[in-house]
């Protein structure tokens, strides 16, 4: 499934207990998101990059994901340097680029990439099901975890339905042009996608009820902390403290 493309693998991060990964993930992303230090944020990015390396995430897929994140950064780089007042760096007529205006998108870009890399390397290397299970073990509210899992399950349903309908359109010779016909086809496509996804999600839910689902996600494979988990947690805790002290 789309949301689990990085979950299969044999790296250290793939075999770690998902509870440990979540416990490491949260403080690191909070630190990255809240810090405005030009030392801490690059250090955090370096940590996240190293973790992605340890997880042996395939380069092309990783860059594909990061490209989506950085697409939004382009807009920040276009607007912020010229709209934030501060020490002038460059002048061209009415346009003035400030040092503060460059520093801010630079920091945001580093933070966004670091958080994306943490997300891919830590929770991303576990299946959504085991993450849901781990969340319940970490005493997160059951309803919240159920909403999280169902969101994932139904997003996948919509994505599958979308792919199937798109193949059907292509098989019947449709290709998009700038015509009313194309707009109509897309309108029907979108409407039908929601109707079919809704019906399918009802069937999925019925199947869950028939197997006595009552809001929990029991798993056969139970979590057990290994030596690797403990060593990883200790190392990451030390690293976290070091970054804070920088």
């Amino acid at each position: 499934m789309q949301l689990e493309v990085f979950s299969q693998g044999r790296s250290l991060l793939h075999i770690l207990d998902p509870r440990v990964k979540l416990l490491v993930y949260l403080p690191f992303i909070l630190l990255t998101a809240l810090s405005n230090s030009l030392v801490q944020v690059p250090a955090s990015l370096a940590t996240a990059t190293t973790l992605a390396g340890i997880a042996r995430i395939p380069g092309p897929r990783l860059f594909q994901r990061l490209a989506v994140v950085n697409l939004f950064m382009v807009f920040l780089w276009i607007t912020l340097p010229f709209s934030i007042p501060g020490e002038p760096l460059w002048n061209a007529g009415p346009l003035m680029m400030s040092r503060e205006g460059v520093t801010l998108p630079f920091l945001i870009t580093l933070k966004a990439n670091a958080i994306a890399l943490y997300t891919i390397s830590l929770p991303g290397t576990s299946t959504v099901m085991s993450l849901s299970h781990a969340m319940l073990h970490l005493r997160l509210p059951g309803k919240l975890v159920t909403v999280f899992y169902f969101f994932y399950r139904y997003i996948s349903v919509i994505a599958d339905e979308y792919a199937r309908m798109l193949r059907m359109l292509q098989a019947r010779g449709f290709h998009a042009t700038t015509s009313i016909h194309t707009i109509k086809v897309y309108a029907f496509f979108t409407g039908m996608l929601f109707i079919k996804s809704h019906e399918r999600s009802e069937r999925v839910y019925n199947a869950l009820l028939m197997r006595n689902f009552h809001g929990e996600f029991p798993l056969l494979a139970h979590f057990r902390l290994s030596r690797q988990d403990l060593i990883f947690s200790c190392f990451m805790s030390c690293l976290f403290l070091t970054i804070i002290l920088l």
Partner: peptide, 23 residues
């Protein structure tokens, strides 16, 4: 169910088969 894709949703086959038992 008529469509097995409606029924299968756990990450591995053995987890899926065990689901109702664990519930």
């Amino acid at each position: 169910f008529q469509d097995p894709d409606d029924q299968l949703f756990l990450p591995t086959v053995e987890e899926d088969i065990a689901f109702a038992l664990l519930n």
